[in-house]
């Protein structure tokens, strides 16, 4: 099965074409790290990887991640799947970073992190959550930490891998799909409510 994979949950704008069979092979991949240009860059990346083959399905990281960029990836995957009549599988973006016995920590901005914990089989056993770095540290303990939040918030002195890999996202999504597990819906794992408050009484304009 050939999967078109996109992820925009971090500053990495990632597109890939990944063959998932007995083994997993990245046929084509583009990654540009530019957290402010997901909207401009993603379609170029998709066009590039499509030169290497015709996908049978679409896999997309649904976050958690900064909302504006995240929506670009999900909207792109959903519309591409709609146009080509392909299944579109949503997968937690943090799963694309996970290693056995690790914690994934990514930057949630506003001095917070997104995080999840994985067991020895690489299965997610906690998260995804959004908390302060201290809150995450308390839950993570002394596990190995990967992701771009690791160095940023002092969880580790090195943080490779920093961003979700298209290879890992495809593997996780397709294996679950073949095992009959439902994919995540094509809606971002926001984890936060919109930042809006209802207005109070109007200000007086007369003295």
């Amino acid at each position: 099965m050939l999967a078109l994979v996109v992820d925009t949950s971090t500053p990495a704008v990632s597109a890939g074409l990944v063959r998932v069979g007995a083994d997993v092979q990245v046929v084509a991949e583009t990654v540009v790290v530019d957290g402010r240009r997901h909207g401009e860059l993603l379609a170029l990346g998709v066009r590039e990887v499509l030169k290497a083959g015709t996908p049978d399905l679409v896999v997309v990281g649904v976050g958690p991640g900064p909302f504006t960029g995240l929506r670009v990836g999900i909207m792109t995957a959903a519309a591409f799947g709609d146009a080509r009549d392909l299944p579109v599988l949503g997968v937690c973006s943090l799963d694309g970073l996970a290693e056995p016995d690790s914690a994934v920590v990514t930057d949630a901005r506003r001095k917070e992190v997104y995080w999840a914990i994985y067991d020895a089989e690489g299965q997610r056993v906690a998260g995804p959550h959004v908390t302060t770095p201290d809150g995450a540290q308390a839950a993570i303990g002394d596990r190995r930490v990967v992701g771009d939040g690791a160095l940023l918030y002092g969880f580790a002195t090195e943080q490779e891998p920093r961003y979700p890999s298209v290879r890992r996202l495809a593997e996780v999504a397709v294996r679950r799909h073949l095992a009959g597990e439902a994919a995540l819906p094509l809606t971002p794992l926001y984890l936060r409510r919109p930042d809006a408050t209802e207005p109070g009484a109007a200000k007086k304009v007369t003295a």
Binding site: G39, A43, V46, A83
Partner: peptide
Amino acid sequence: VAAAKAYALA
């Protein structure tokens, strides 16, 4: 814009 690009590309 993301939707339009994906439809155009696909």
